[in-house]
Computed example of a mutant assay.
Amino acid sequence: MEIITMKTAFFILIAVSISGILFSLTSCSDKLDIQQMYDFSLSTMPVQKRIKQGETAEIRCQLHKSGNYKETKFHIGYFQPEGKGTLKMDDGTVFLPNDTYPLEKETFRLYYTSECSDQQQIDLTVYDSFGQRYELSISMQNETTKPSDAQ
């Protein structure tokens, strides 16, 4: 039976330690993978289908995010391909068509006031700071009072 000397045991221990260190260094990456960009969508509670000129419709909105990177900024804007009206945020900000505004909350309300007696459509677009966007269209029919109903 062979007896291992203290010097040999020390070299074996050093060799095993160095091998373990080399193995752990080659199997790991020093790059930290942080996901910054997540999918998102915008939903609304049911919106009224008919609107009269001068009437205001409330649009309750919810931004849904598949993940949360705190540096992500969101903006909202709108375009009105049909009809005429004004759109206002719940904080009082009046939107101009084709401009974007910071979206500070995930749950918010918009108020659309009809300024015509035609069919109306507004196209909402939410953008994130990575260039992703989500679009949502809302249509409302004109509701006019018939002469026989006005008595």
Rank of each mutant, 00 (worst) to 15 (best):
I21W: 05
A9G: 06
L110C: 08
T5D: 12
I21V: 15
E143T: 00
L63N: 06
H75A: 05
T56E: 08
Q141D: 11
E58N: 12
K88Y: 01
F79Y: 11
I51Q: 03
V47A: 04
K146N: 02
Q53T: 09
M140P: 06
P97S: 13
Y127P: 07
P97D: 05
F108E: 09
G20W: 03
G85Q: 04
I59W: 01
H75P: 00
C28R: 15
H64S: 09
S117G: 10
Q119F: 05
Q80V: 05
R109D: 08
Q132Y: 04
I18E: 00
Q120V: 06
Q80Y: 02
G77V: 06
T5L: 03
K84H: 05
Q121M: 14
M89Q: 07
S29D: 10
F108L: 11
A57M: 10
S19Y: 04
L96A: 13
Q121N: 06
K65T: 13
T125G: 02
E71Y: 10
T8N: 02
T113Q: 14
Q119D: 07
H64P: 00
S139P: 01
Q132H: 07
L110T: 08
F11W: 14
K52L: 01
E58H: 02
K146Q: 08
A57P: 04
Q48H: 01
E55M: 10
D33H: 11
K49L: 04
E71V: 13
L32N: 14
T72C: 07
D128L: 09
C28W: 04
Q121C: 07
Y101N: 05
M140T: 04
R60W: 01
G77C: 08
Y112T: 05
I18Y: 02
I21H: 03
L63Q: 08
E2R: 11
K49D: 02
E115R: 15
I76N: 04
Y78A: 04
K49A: 06
D123T: 11
A150G: 02
L32Y: 14
M6K: 14
I138Q: 03
K105H: 13
Q151N: 10
I138V: 12
R109K: 15
I3R: 14
G83L: 02
Y111H: 12
I12A: 08
M45A: 15
Y38C: 02
Q119L: 06
L25Q: 13
K52D: 00
L13D: 00
F11L: 12
Y127K: 14
K73G: 06
K84F: 00
T8G: 00
F40W: 06
I3H: 12
Q120M: 09
A57Q: 04
S114F: 01
G20D: 00
M37Q: 12
Q53A: 05
R60L: 06
L25P: 02
D118A: 09
A15M: 11
L124M: 09
C28M: 12
E115C: 10
L103C: 10
S66N: 13
E58G: 08
F108A: 10
D90N: 15
D39T: 05
F130T: 03
E2C: 01
D118H: 10
N68R: 14
S19I: 12
L25F: 12
E58T: 15
T44W: 03
Q121Y: 00
E106D: 15
K146Y: 05
F40L: 08
S17R: 00
E143A: 11
D128K: 09
K31N: 12
I138E: 03
I14Y: 10
T26S: 14
V126G: 08
Y112N: 05
V47Q: 03
T93D: 03
T93Y: 01
M140G: 05
E58K: 15
P81D: 01
T113S: 09
S66F: 01
